[in-house]
């Protein structure tokens, strides 16, 4: 599903150029659960931003379902992103002014789903995340674990092929953290590809494979579990998208 080759990213201030990603290469198969680990400043977040099509690499190739996306403009990236990728953040990033229901509903609004269907799908996902009873509350009224469950609900409501999780348990206590990890595992077992950045060895054990990074490069790879790929086609609004169409 994902194949990056010699990926490079620099951050330049007036005088200093920092290398965030240094010719990084690896691939992720559809349905895989990959954990990315490494010390602060090793380039994990940069990697996640590029994988999430939030940022553009400065060099190298990024194939997303066999489509080269590294040269995509903002509009095309956004289009691809909103149909295929869901995000879970350490700090939840829920919108304080919106209720639980409205937060989860947002991605559906942006992909143009009709209101009746939205309600159905949001309710279904809230039910699944066991947060239905909180649907009219605002984020500040929830515990951290509940907030992260809402964030996960929001990430999956659009049935993304890929979920990118940036330290999803970083702001949670261990029981809430385990609960969230359980949710992610369930999603993965249902077929969603997950790439997770984490500092926690405990969380990383939920994955199939751990990629360890240092100074923008891959250092080691530990395979924890056996994984059999089952490629699924990439979709957009209209349905299946072929590589030729995206270009």
């Amino acid at each position: 599903m994902i194949k990056i080759t010699d990926l490079e990213k620099y951050y330049a201030t007036e005088e200093v150029r920092t290398i965030a990603l240094n010719k990084l290469s690896f691939s992720v198969k559809t349905g895989e659960f990959v954990a990315v680990m490494g010390p602060s400043g090793c380039g994990k977040s940069t990697l996640l931003n590029i994988l999430g099509l939030l940022d553009d690499p400065d060099g190298g190739s990024f194939m997303f379902n066999d489509i080269e996306v590294s040269g995509f403009n903002e509009r095309k990236r956004a289009e691809l992103r909103k149909h295929n990728i869901g995000f879970v953040f350490q700090s939840f990033n829920l919108i304080d002014e919106l209720t639980v229901f409205e937060n989860v509903e947002l991605p559906l609004i942006y992909t143009g789903v009709k209101s009746a269907e939205r309600k159905e799908r949001v309710d279904a996902v809230l039910e699944k995340m066991q947060i239905m009873h909180r649907r009219k509350h605002f984020p500040q009224q929830l515990s951290g674990g509940q907030q992260q469950r809402v964030a996960v609900a929001r990430a999956v409501v659009n049935n993304p092929k890929l979920i990118l999780a940036d330290e999803p348990t970083g702001n949670l206590d261990s029981s809430n953290g385990n609960e969230v990890m359980g949710l992610l595992t369930e999603l993965n077992e249902a077929g969603t590809t997950i790439i997770m950045v984490t500092h926690s060895e405990h969380d990383a054990k939920y994955s199939h494979r751990i990629i360890r990074m240092l100074d923008g490069q891959k250092v080691t790879e530990n395979i924890l579990a056996d994984f059999k790929s089952s490629e699924r086609p990439l979709t957009t609004e209209g349905g299946t998208l072929t590589p030729a169409e995206v270009k």
């Binding site: 939030l54 909103k82 995000f87 990033n93 304080d96 947002l106 942006y110």
Partner: peptide, 16 residues
């Protein structure tokens, strides 16, 4: 800023 960022990540377009 944060809210706008979240919305964009979730797929909101510039015009939206």
């Amino acid at each position: 800023t944060k809210e706008i960022g979240v919305r964009k990540v979730l797929g909101a377009s510039v015009s939206q």
